[in-house]
Every structure is written in structure tokens, then in C-alpha cells.
Design a protein around this nucleic acid. Structure first.
Length: 383
DNA sequence: AATGCGTGGTC
DNA sequence: TGACCAAGCAT
């Protein structure tokens, strides 16, 4: 008997009786599922891309990115052969940029080791970079009709309410229990639809706030609906607070071009382009730091620095205040990078064509440079 | 087990 | 406004 990676109980047993939600859940899904673009394809590659994009990201946000990505890289082969810069460029603005890097890496693996066809089991899928337990189950069940379980944020919430789980949902014992229940539930007809129905229920009815218990298709099986505490489930530990962070960035112009630099492949905004700069202390006077930071980052001397303003940006764990300066370069001198992996002198209008994150976009907007995407965002902010 | 990693929406 | 959160993964 082959050793199992994750230990689960016998899925044919159903001590909690969760399998009784299968029929009403599937029936509800058939009537009420949203019309999403990736529900019109059977292409495992396209489904995989959708799952990668949907990680921690809303459906409405993903749709245009998914369309653009599939247009730019229509197959595993196309993605494997693509320039990583082009992949980043399509991903710009979507966040969690390691997903783009991992997709590209995994596509190369699929071409090199799997003959260009995505593996069709959860176990094999999980060996690919960026595919974890959830995504493996999603692709295996949705694209290949395998009876593979999945547990995501929606499933945690639905199960916690259904089964009346009132302990911390991140505790290992609870996580194991949830995967056991998902494993029990998925066995049978239409595993892909069953999994999607579970998530669809969490996304549209069994929502974090104001759940629609009154019209829920599985209300009769739900512990929290009976007790009346659905909205307080699942129980989660408080997230650690955001730490404050300050930085300066400098617009450095020479012969009509500005200097942009690329961040290293690890850490915050990995692999993305930005204006050269660096972190400063809370007590520092930003303007007094510009010359030192610029010299440390790119080895250039500046004559003076004019403050343009500050932009705020919230990351999951950090709150960044970025103070932006337009600095006058001393004549001569060549770039000596430190901490950055590449640099380029580009026309100001072309800077935002390079893959970048929110702070860069906001800084450029402050400096009067713009591109299609930021122009769209600006119109949205001030209609 | 806990933390780092983006962004945009909601209340 | 701040807090929370959305089809997670890697380390």
C-alpha cells in the first residue's frame, strides 16, 4: 500500500453526516452559479491559471487579468517559452508577484518533465512550484474530474458553521478535520462541481458578514443556523498589526530619461521596477536622507532634492509612507547599484510599462507621469 | 506555527 | 478610518 502524504481517516465513513448536503448543494449550484469565464473552458491550463490568480484575490479583480494572461500566454508551451518580464508585465497590479514567477517556473517543469501536459492528479500537481494543497485539489477536481478534496477560506467558513466548529480554525486539529470532511464530501458524482458549489456557497450566501441563512440550501444541516451564531464563525485569531515603514524615492533625470531600478527576486515587491530609494527611520527628516539613500542605492551624487509629496500604501503587514523627491544629478558619474538587480534609463512615459507595484504607480502619478492603468485608477478615485 | 507576501472592496 | 478579508503558498 502506498504511503499517503497527508493522513486522513477512511473517507467512506461519515461521522458528521456531511454527505447529506451533496444533493441540495449541487442542485442549488446548478441553478445559481455565477457565469465566470473559466467556467466556459475545459482546458486544464486555463483552469490552473484561474486558480493561481484567485488565490487571495477577488473574482471581479481576476477576470480581466485572466483574459489578458490567456491571450498573451495561451498554452503551457507559450508560458514556458515566455520572457519572465512579459509575465510580470501582464501580472502588474494583481499582487502577490511570486505567483507569476511560480507559474512560469511550473510551466517550464510541465514542458520539460510532463511532455507539456499538466499532471492529472492532485498528488503530482502539488509537486509543481506554487501549487499547494488547495490548488492541487482544485485543478484535479475541476479540470480532471478527480475526487480530490479542497479547503479554502470559503470552505473553512462553510464547514465551521455547518459543523459548529467553535475553536480557532487555524489550529492543526481543526485543519485536519476540515480536510477529512472535504475528503468525505467530494467522493461521488461531479467532484469538480461539488467543490465549486461549496466555494460558491461561501462566496455568495455563507458570507463572512450578513450570511443569507434564510435562503441557504443546506440550512437544515447547519449547526450555526440552528444556534444563530453563523456570523461569529469561523473563530480566527487576530492578525498581527501592520508595522509602519518609511522610505524615500527619487526621480533622477538625465538627457530626458529617468532612472528605474529592479528589486531583488525575493521579499517585498520582488522583481518589480521602481524609482531608486530606500527605507529611512521614523525619526529621520526625509529630505536630509535623499542624497545618502540615492548614493547608497545607485552610487550617484545629487545637487539638490525637491520634495514632491508623499504617498501611502498598505501592504498586508506593513504601512508604507513613501516620500517622493525630484533630485538634480551632479554631472558625470555612472550607476553603481546596491540592493537592486538591474537598472535602466527610460523615458518617463515608458517607466510604467515595466512591471511595478502600487507605490511606484502612486509615486509616478504624484510626479505627473501617467499610463493607461494609472489614468484609469485616477479617474476611478475622482470621478 | 508563524510570518511575509499586494491589492481592492466593504462596513 | 481602521479592521477585516478574498478560490493560498513558501519557508
Amino acid at each position: 500500500m502506498p504511503a499517503r502524504k497527508k493522513k486522513t481517516r477512511d473517507p467512506s465513513e461519515d461521522p458528521s453526516g456531511i454527505r447529506r448536503i451533496r444533493a441540495p448543494l449541487l442542485s442549488w449550484y446548478d441553478q445559481h452559479k455565477r457565469d465566470l469565464p473559466w467556467r466556459h473552458t475545459r482546458d486544464p491550463y486555463a483552469i490552473w491559471i484561474s486558480e493561481a490568480m484567485l488565490q487571495q484575490t477577488r473574482v471581479e479583480t481576476v477576470i480581466p487579468y485572466w483574459n489578458r494572461f490567456l491571450e498573451a500566454f495561451p498554452s503551457v508551451q507559450a508560458l514556458a517559452a515566455a520572457d519572465i518580464d512579459d509575465v510580470y508585465a501582464v501580472w502588474t497590479g494583481l499582487g502577490y508577484y511570486s505567483r507569476a514567477r511560480n507559474l512560469k517556473h511550473a510551466a517550464e517543469t510541465v514542458v520539460a518533465e510532463h511532455g507539456g501536459a499538466l499532471p492529472d492528479t492532485a498528488e503530482e500537481l502539488e509537486t509543481l512550484k506554487g501549487i499547494g494543497r488547495y490548488t492541487a485539489g482544485a485543478v484535479a477536481s475541476i479540470a480532471f474530474e478527480r475526487e480530490a478534496p479542497l479547503v479554502d477560506g470559503n470552505v473553512i467558513r462553510v464547514f465551521a458553521r455547518l459543523l459548529g466548529i467553535r475553536e480557532d480554525s487555524a489550529a492543526k486539529a481543526v485543519v485536519d478535520r476540515l480536510w477529512d470532511e472535504a475528503t468525505t464530501l467530494v467522493v461521488g458524482e461531479r467532484p469538480g462541481d461539488l467543490n465549486q458549489a461549496l466555494m460558491e456557497l461561501g462566496a455568495t450566501l455563507c458570507t463572512p458578514r450578513n450570511p443569507s441563512c434564510l435562503i441557504c440550501p443546506v440550512r437544515e444541516a447547519c449547526d450555526a443556523a440552528a444556534v444563530g451564531d453563523a456570523e461569529s464563525l469561523p473563530v480566527k485569531k487576530k492578525r498581527t498589526k501592520q508595522t509602519k515603514m518609511r522610505a524615500v524615492a527619487a526621480w533622477l533625470e538625465r538627457d530626458g530619461k529617468i532612472l528605474v531600478v529592479r528589486r531583488p527576486e525575493e521579499g517585498l515587491m520582488a522583481g518589480l521596477w521602481e524609482l531608486p530609494g530606500g527605507e529611512i527611520e521614523a525619526k529621520d527628516e526625509a529630505k536630509e536622507c535623499v542624497a545618502g539613500i540615492v548614493h547608497a542605492a545607485v552610487g550617484l551624487e545629487i545637487l539638490d532634492a525637491e520634495g514632491i509629496g508623499a504617498v501611502e500604501h498598505l501592504f498586508t503587514h506593513r504601512k508604507l509612507t513613501l516620500e517622493v523627491f525630484r533630485a538634480r544629478l551632479a554631472p558625470g558619474g555612472r550607476v553603481r547599484r546596491s540592493g537592486y538587480v538591474a537598472h535602466r534609463w527610460v523615458a518617463p512615459d515608458a517607466a510604467l510599462d515595466l512591471a511595478h507595484a502600487g507605490p511606484m504607480r502612486k509615486a509616478m502619478a504624484l510626479l505627473g507621469a501617467t499610463d493607461e492603468r494609472s489614468a484609469r485608477a485616477a479617474r476611478k478615485r475622482t470621478p
